[in-house]
């Protein structure tokens, strides 16, 4: 396999339009990280289990390592870089992670934030069990999950109260 097998892709990432050329074998995560230099999306296992590379593709969570960049053609991608309203602020979910000690090394965090972004949009009033089930496809080796679950519950409540 050489660099010969190239494709044009046109997509939006966090609302910004990109038109790029990419090899067919490039994963979406590699494309985001190494072509677009959006390094917030992390690769933890590259076989679709750990969930660190989770991004939203047309609003649904996907594994960035199991999705090819060409599959994102004509689609919209949301990544961790697009969550905060401004460079100096955090959104409600991010803020809840900060306040509830929802991260330690922070490597799995972008994927977890994207998983929960989708989950809380679909299920604004979850039980703790539902949160844990939603997180079951994201592995965190540092925290033991307690802070993550607390952050998700806290964010859900704040989002409900703010009507967001």
């Amino acid at each position: 396999m050489t660099d010969g097998d190239m494709h044009e892709v046109s997509l939006t990432v966090n609302g910004v339009q990109y038109d790029e050329t990419v090899e067919s074998r490039w994963s979406l995560a590699d494309f985001l990280r190494h072509k677009l230099r959006l390094t917030g999306t992390h690769l933890g296992c590259e076989h679709g289990v750990c969930g660190a590379c989770t991004v939203l593709l047309n609003g649904r969570s996907v594994r960035g390592c199991l999705t090819l960049a060409v599959q994102a053609n004509e689609k919209s991608v949301e990544t961790v870089e697009g969550l905060a309203p401004t460079e100096t602020e955090l959104n409600v979910l991010q803020q809840a992670f900060w306040e509830n000690h929802g991260l330690q090394c922070g490597f799995c965090t972008p994927g977890i934030l994207m998983t929960l972004t989708e989950f809380l949009r679909d299920n604004p009033d979850p039980s703790e069990t539902e949160v844990r089930e939603a997180l079951s496809g994201n592995i965190c080796r540092c925290t033991g999950y307690q802070g993550i679950v607390a952050a998700a519950m806290d964010a859900a409540e704040k989002l409900r109260n703010s009507g967001q």
Partner: peptide, 21 residues
């Protein structure tokens, strides 16, 4: 005390070794 590390890590601004280019 809330962690100084968190805002960058939560915003995709971490600096891990594979982020070096």
């Amino acid at each position: 005390v809330k962690r100084l590390e968190d805002p960058d890590l939560l915003s995709g601004r971490g600096q891990f070794v594979d982020d070096l280019n």
